[in-house]
Design a protein around this nucleic acid. Sequence first.
DNA 1: ACCTGAACACCGTTCAAGT
DNA 2: ACCTGAACACCGTTCAAGT
Lengths: 186, 186
Amino acid sequence: MSARRGQPLTIQEIYAAVLRLVDEGGVENLSMRKLAAELDVNPMSLYHHVENKDALLRGACTAVALGLRLPPDDGTPWQEQLRALAHAYRSIALSHPALWSYVNAHPGLVEQEGGMWEVFNRVLAAAGVPAGELVRVRTVLYTFVSGLLTAETSGLLAGLDPDGDAETTFDAAVDLILDALGSRVT
Amino acid sequence: MSARRGQPLTIQEIYAAVLRLVDEGGVENLSMRKLAAELDVNPMSLYHHVENKDALLRGACTAVALGLRLPPDDGTPWQEQLRALAHAYRSIALSHPALWSYVNAHPGLVEQEGGMWEVFNRVLAAAGVPAGELVRVRTVLYTFVSGLLTAETSGLLAGLDPDGDAETTFDAAVDLILDALGSRVT
DNA sequence: ACCTGAACACCGTTCAAGT
DNA sequence: ACCTGAACACCGTTCAAGT
């Protein structure tokens, strides 16, 4: 018999429940059986919508990544666009810290993070980074932001700036690296 | 009866087996039962030497951290000492990538990473960083290296530099951030 | 002091069976 | 098409018992 109240059980419904469990207790708090209980469903029903636990997590990560708000290709200066990209990425990371930490430790898990890399490429090209160095520069910049967010999601950035919050420190650090980049490309 | 060949089972022996398992299959490859099998011992015997699995992992991480080769306090320039510190840290991360990734995602797991923070403080003070900004600068620098190593341990840095290996990219990135720091303190 | 076996409450996943 | 129950091979950990 069907213990469920409504319609079949959608993948969105499943992802939402995954986020609830992971947000509240980390990735290690997610189990197929707990997830089924959260959805008021038999554990085995999940396997009709998802290949296995790994695929489920990958799917949830991709779903979150698609929510990335990429800066548009208007004429604004590259520094501003990079800042906007960094903040968009940070916003997603902070809304699901545990899941982001998991993705960060397993890169390649989500192939296209909402087209982030293409935008990154465009802005860096506009900044004057030669095509041959693009991937390297992009990777280094990304790792920098990734490191900052690792610190922030673990509370290492909290109360670090006497006059402000973690965002102040994040901004200052991004400015630092943008200055360094600027002095290289000009 | 004792299925073991020799003496009681030392904590060093246990940590060594933990490293073997984690190095070869990641932290998720470590289970108390597999570890016991690796040591040719009853699973329950482990609990006589270690409180539980979390404490075991924490202990193994601390043991590794104690192997950090800190740069001595000779008169060498601060840039060179920071580079040496970064390389010492990198060396440990690369020798146990999976364990390092775990520590990186769980900061505060190992309290004193072999006195790394004290050395960091000393060198930054020598570089002219005001005492009030020391922790913030240190944290930002650390997160930068942490991000680079996350990339390197996941293979993102491999083959990025046309003329060299991942170390070349690592060095170039460290130089970039040292330049940025230098232009702030002088 | 150190080790052990049985037991408990969990896991992910397969498979044959139900509607 | 979608769901389910029983089953299998795993987990971490407790506890009473052995030497």
